[in-house]
Design a protein around this nucleic acid. Structure first.
Lengths: 187, 187
DNA sequence: GTTACTTTTTGATATAGATCAAAAGCTTTG
DNA sequence: CAAAGCTTTTGATCTATATCAAAAAGTAAC
C-alpha cells in the first residue's frame, strides 16, 4: 500500500504535509533479491514496504536464518543501528520486485516531534513490534514445530506459497528437513 | 529508584510538572507476594517499579511460567489490555516488599501528548521493550539451556539469588529439573 | 530432451531436554 | 527439636527434533 494512503488511514494529512512526506521518503523500485541491508552493516534508515515482501535474516554458524517477513504496508528498522548505534546483526532483502520507501531515522524523528498525529502512529508501530516479538517468543517457547507451522499457515498463507522452504523453516526455528516431514504429514 | 528521580535523568521537570506527576501516579507500598494483576484479567494501568522486583507470568497447561522480571526503575504494562483491549494473558506479582507507582494508560497518554520530553522517553521505553523481546527470542531459539543460564547469571546475578528456582527455570524455558542439573554441572 | 543445478524429500542415527517418580534438603511452626 | 510442608536434587526413561547422507523431484540452460 502506498505510504500516503497508509498514513491517511491513521490521520488527516494537509496537502503541504503530504508533499513534505512524499519528498522526505525516498522511493525506490527494486528487483527481486535486492539487498536493502547487509548483516553486520550500519543503517539508520527506516524502511516502509509499499509493494513486495521483505525478509530480514541473520547469519548463525554460517547458516542464513530468517528473522521476520515484512509484508506490504509495514515498517522496518534496525533497532540496533538506529537506537543503539551498533551494527545491525540483521540483513534485509526484498523477495519479489517491489517498491520501498526510506527515510533516515533522524529525519523521521523530527517529523514525529513536530507533528502530533505521527506520534500516535509511531507508538502504534512500536506496540505492534513488541506484540509481534512477544507472540513469536511464545510460539517458539511453547508450540511444537507442527503447531507453529499451522499458525503460520493461518497467519501468512500467501507467504507460504511465495517463499522457498528453507526461509520458512528457519523462520519457524526448525530445519528444512523437519519442515518437509511436517508438510508430508509424517510427524 | 523513585519515579521523579528516574524522570529527571531523562528530562528537565518544572516544579509544577513534578507535582502533577506525583499526583497522577498512585503510590503503593506492597507486601511480598502481592498480586498486581491476575492472569486473564483486564488492566490498562501502567506500572512503575520504584522498589522491589516484579515478576510477570502466565499459566500454560496448569503450570506457572515466568514471562519476565521487572527490576527497579522499569515500567510494565499489559500490551494486550492497554493497546488491544483484550484480557491480559499475563499476571504480575511483586516478589519482595516494594513500592509500585501506577497510572491509567489513558492518563499517561494525555501527559505524553502534552509534554514533548515524555514522548522521547516513552519511545525509549518501547524500544527497550522490543530489544528485550528480540534478545530473549534469540536466546530461546539459538542458545542451549546452559548458555541461557550463563547469560542470565551475567545479566541478573541478583535475581538468581533472590528468586525461587522454579521461576527462573520457567523464565529460561526449561524445567526445574534441568536447571538443577545445570547448576550442579551435570550436563 | 539431456545435462547441470537447485530444492525438497526420505532414511538412519544421535541428542538435548522433558517427564515421571522418588529421595534428600531446607524452612516454618507449634 | 519433631512434624509438616516446601524446594531442590537425583535417577531412569522417553521424545521431538537435529544432524548427516543420499535419493528424488523440479527448474533452467543448452
Amino acid at each position: 500500500m502506498e505510504l500516503i494512503l497508509y498514513l491517511k488511514q491513521h490521520m488527516i494529512l494537509s496537502p503541504e504535509m503530504e508533499a513534505q512526506v512524499q519528498e522526505a521518503f525516498k522511493r525506490e523500485e527494486l528487483p527481486k533479491g535486492h539487498r536493502l541491508l547487509a548483516p553486520g552493516n550500519f543503517s539508520q534508515k527506516v524502511f516502509y514496504v509499499e509493494k513486495g515482501v521483505v525478509r530480514t535474516y541473520y547469519m548463525k554458524d554460517g547458516k542464513d536464518i530468517t528473522h521476520s517477513f515484512i509484508l506490504e504496508g509495514a515498517f522496518f528498522i534496525s533497532i540496533e543501528s538506529a537506537f543503539f548505534n551498533t551494527p545491525s546483526p540483521y540483513g534485509a532483502e526484498i523477495l519479489e520486485p517491489g517498491i520501498i520507501r526510506t527515510i533516515p531515522y533522524q529525519d523521521l524523528e523530527k517529523f514525529i516531534d513536530d507533528f502530533q498525529p505521527l506520534q500516535k502512529l509511531s507508538r502504534l508501530v512500536m506496540i505492534n513490534a513488541v506484540k509481534t516479538f512477544s507472540d513469536k517468543l511464545y510460539s517458539i517457547q511453547f508450540q511444537s514445530a507442527q503447531e507453529r507451522y499451522n499458525s503460520m499457515l493461518e497467519k501468512f498463507p500467501d507467504i507460504m506459497l511465495r517463499v522457498p522452504l528453507g526461509h520458512i523453516a528457519s523462520y519457524l526455528g526448525i530445519t528444512q528437513e523437519t519442515l518437509s516431514r511436517i508438510r508430508a504429514g509424517k510427524v
